[in-house]
């Protein structure tokens, strides 16, 4: 039997990293920056959190303070992703480099950083532990409401997650409101559609692009952090994060640049990613490998369906992928 009560929470925790990535990428794209470095940024966000948590656990030993155990990894994660965002902005906004190539280089770099430090952190810090398993930090970050377990299926489906999961959903809602209802959101939409127009209207295009892209990078980075610290129980293993960054970028297209839709879309995709565990295949291991391909196949189908829709409001931001130079005539 298909166990829906077990399935939904697992789909949600799979979907949360995608949601972070998708929201971050959406606001970034709204500013006209197509950041293909998001997969790399999510790696960096994750590993920076790991480094912070690792050093703190080493230092504090048994006397860990809850607040610091949560704040230090998050802060490290944000700083790491911010730096990545700044690299991207400097190259594409200030130096007007090609966004695609910059993004790909960032992904190579970011994944490299993640795997290198993930694999070498113990050696580098000279610590005396066999592997990185930040179970204490995990316990702090993934803490749920104490009464959640008593609420049966309701608690399981809605209340069984760490606070970062709710933060992701909150962030998606805030991003949606920001885009739709605020002056900054209006300015941002204008920049993405036509930076020259926004510039002529007195909006500082470069400043917006920097701020929003860096914010987007930080949000995406949190996705990486959530993955290691909450989903993966504080255990970093190389390449485990995989292609979630790319799926997040694909989700942006799927959700037609609307963070509120992203909440449901990412959970849906999370479900697809774990479907192979819920489809009974018996002892046939090979078929399971094929089922793992389902999310990619669905992404492709989604891309095709999206390209068939032609409504004006559902198109990507007009200047997406193009760098802006005021004096270009």
């Amino acid at each position: 039997m298909f166990d829906i009560v077990a399935f939904i929470p697992r789909a949600v925790v799979q979907g949360i990293p995608l949601l972070f990535g998708c929201v971050g990428e959406t606001i970034t794209e709204k500013s006209g920056n197509l950041n293909l470095g998001t997969p790399g940024i999510m790696y960096v966000g994750g590993i920076c959190g790991v480094i912070g948590a690792f050093l703190y656990e080493q230092k504090a030993g048994a006397h860990m303070i809850g607040f610091l155990a949560i704040a230090i990894p998050i802060l490290c994660c944000l700083i790491g992703s911010l730096l990545m965002g700044l690299i991207y902005c400097f190259l594409t906004v200030t130096l007007r480099a090609n966004q695609n190539v910059t993004g790909l280089a960032m992904t190579t770099f970011g994944v490299g950083i993640g795997n290198f430090f993930g694999g070498s952190l113990i050696k580098l810090s000279g610590a005396d532990v066999p592997s990185i398993a930040l179970s204490k930090t995990h316990a702090f970050i993934s803490a749920t409401l104490p009464f959640a377990k008593k609420l049966g299926w309701f608690g399981k489906i809605f209340l069984s997650y760490g606070f970062l999961a709710y933060a992701a959903i909150a962030m998606a809602i805030i991003a949606a409101i920001m885009l739709k209802k605020t002056r900054a959101g209006l300015n941002l939409r204008a920049i993405g559609e036509s930076p020259a127009t926004a510039d002529a209207a007195g909006i500082s295009v470069i400043r917006y692009k920097y701020i929003v892209t860096c914010m987007g990078a930080m949000i995406a980075g949190l996705g990486g952090l959530y993955y290691v610290m909450d989903f993966a129980s504080g255990v970093w293993s190389n390449d485990a994060f995989g292609d979630r960054g790319w799926l997040a970028i694909a989700l942006v297209i799927f959700t037609i640049w609307r963070p509120n839709i992203a909440i449901f879309a990412s959970i849906l995709f999370g479900g697809l990613c774990i479907l192979h565990m819920f489809i009974p295949t018996g002892t046939n291991l090979a078929v399971k490998e094929l089922y793992k391909g389902i999310p990619y196949l669905v992404t492709i189908i989604v891309l095709i369906i999206t390209s068939l829709r032609n409504k004006r409001e559902n198109q990507p931001p007009g200047s997406l992928g193009l760098s802006y130079f005021r004096e270009d005539r």
Binding site: A97, N98, V101, A105, F109, F116, G119, K123
Partner: peptide, 19 residues
């Protein structure tokens, strides 16, 4: 160390050439 060190260096050199 593990092999990913190369990816970091590749990234750096790419940033410079792109820039």
């Amino acid at each position: 160390f593990n092999d990913s060190f190369g990816a970091i260096l590749t990234g750096i050199i790419l940033f410079f050439i792109i820039g």
